[in-house]
Design a protein around this nucleic acid. Structure first.
Lengths: 215, 215
DNA sequence: GTCGGTCTGTGATCGCCATCACGCGGGCGG
DNA sequence: CCGCCCGCGTGATGGCGATCACAGACCGAC
C-alpha cells in the first residue's frame, strides 16, 4: 500500500490504473479542465500550480513519489482546481475517476484513508492561510524551507538539501523572486543555510527553527 | 438529510447525537484541543477562529444552520485546527468522533458526502490562499462580501444584508479594522453598498462583481 | 434619559515588500 | 570549447497597508 501524506491507494486498486511516463514540462491537466482522473506519483516530481493576476503563478504543492493527486475533481465533479505539470522525467499511475469512486464505495478503509488525505491537505492549507496573512516573508521562508526539507530529504538531523529554484520558492511563498532571494540572503548571512543553483542546503536546522519563530 | 456546503449527515446518524443549547460567546472547543466530537449547527451562528501573532485573531469561517464542523479531528485524531465559539444563542448537535467514524464506515454514501464536504472546504481554502497572496484588500473585500451574501442571505438578485462587524470582516480578510473600513468606504462612495452598525447592505451586486474583478 | 461601551470613520506616519534595473556566474548545447 | 541563457544577488524607489491617534454615532443597561 502506497502511503505518504496525500491519501493512499491499495495495490489492487493501483493495478487497475494505467502507467504513464512523462517528460519534463508535460501537462497532466490544466486548471478548470473537466477531467476526473486520479493520479499517483511513482517517480519524479509534479507541480500543482494556479495562475494569478499579472501572469504570475502560484505554486500550491510539489508532489513526490507516493503522493496522490487529482482527487478533488473525482470527488465533486467540478473543474480542476490547479494545473499539474511534471517537473522532471516522471512516472505516474492514472486511475479513472469512476474506478476511484467505485473503490471508495467498496472499501471503507480506502474511504477513511482518502478522508485523512484531504484532512491533511486542509490543515496545511489553513496553516498557509494563517502564515500568509500574518507572517513576514522572512518567517514564511524559514517555515517553508523546514517543510520542504521534511518532504524532500526526510527529517534526519544532518544537513538537508532542498532542490528548488528561487523562482519556484517565491511562487510557493506568494512573493517575488527578489524578495525570496533577499530572505535567503539574510538566512545565509545568519549561517543557517547555504544557497546554490537550484539548491538550498539547510546546514543548521535547529537554528532555522528558532529563526522561523522570531523573524 | 442535512446538506449545506460542509458535508452532510443523515437523520438517523444525527439522532445518535446530543442536542446542545449554547449561549453567545460559549466555546465548543479550542485550537489544539484533543477532543474528536463532530458538530452540526442547527440554529444560530458559530465562529471558527485561529490565533495569530500579536494577539490577533484570524476568522476561518462562520457556520450557519446545516453546516457540519469539527470533522477534521475525528478523521485524523490530531488536535483541533481552530477554536469554535458560538456567536449568538445557538443550538448544535454533538456526535462522538467514534460514532461518526462508525457511520462513515457503515455508509459509503456518508463517506462520499464527507469527502465532498472536505473537497469543498479545500477548494475554498485554495481560493483564499490565491486571493490573499495576489489581491489587494479592496478586491478581497469585494469578493468576501459576495461570498458572505450567498452564505447568509441566499443569492437572490435583490439587495442582500450581511450581518457582520468590520472587526470580524477584517479578521476574516487577514487585515486590520482600519483597512477594512477604508475599503468599505471606497465601495460605499462607489454606490454599491451601504454600511451600518454590524451590517453591510449590498445594494448593487452586479456592480460589486465588476469591482471585485478590477479593484 | 443618561451613561458607558462598542462600532464606525478618517487623518498622519512608517515600514515592508513589489517593482525596476543591472551585473555576475555557471551549466549546457552546439 | 565557447557562447548563451538561466538562475542568482543586490541597489533604488514607490505604494499599499499597518499602526497610532482621535472623534462621532449607535445601542443597551440602568
Amino acid at each position: 500500500m502506497f502511503e505518504r501524506g496525500r491519501g493512499a491507494v491499495p495495490d489492487d486498486v493501483l493495478a487497475q490504473g494505467r502507467r504513464r511516463r512523462l517528460t519534463a514540462g508535460q501537462v497532466l491537466f490544466r486548471e478548470a479542465d473537466l477531467s476526473t482522473s486520479v493520479f499517483v506519483c511513482v517517480s519524479g516530481r509534479v507541480r500543482l500550480v494556479v495562475s494569478a493576476v499579472a501572469g504570475r503563478e502560484l505554486l500550491l504543492d510539489v508532489l513526490v513519489p507516493g503522493d496522490v493527486f487529482g482527487d478533488l475533481s473525482a470527488i465533486d465533479g467540478l473543474g480542476r482546481s490547479a494545473s499539474a505539470v511534471a517537473m522532471d522525467e516522471s512516472v505516474v499511475v492514472e486511475l479513472s475517476g469512476a474506478d476511484y469512486l467505485d473503490a471508495v464505495r467498496a472499501s471503507p478503509e480506502l474511504a477513511l484513508s482518502s478522508l485523512r488525505g484531504l484532512a491533511r491537505q486542509l490543515r496545511r492549507a489553513n496553516a498557509r492561510i494563517r502564515a500568509g496573512e500574518t507572517e513576514t516573508v522572512a518567517a514564511r521562508t524559514a517555515h517553508l524551507l523546514l517543510e520542504l526539507a521534511d518532504r524532500f530529504a526526510g527529517s534526519g538531523p544532518g544537513a538537508a538539501t532542498v532542490p528548488i529554484t528561487q523562482s519556484d520558492l517565491a511562487d510557493w511563498l506568494g512573493t517575488t523572486r527578489e524578495s525570496a532571494a533577499r530572505a535567503l540572503g539574510d538566512l545565509r548571512r545568519a549561517g543557517v543555510i547555504t544557497t546554490g543553483r537550484s539548491r538550498i542546503v539547510l546546514s543548521d536546522r535547529p537554528a532555522l527553527v528558532a529563526l522561523a519563530r522570531t523573524a
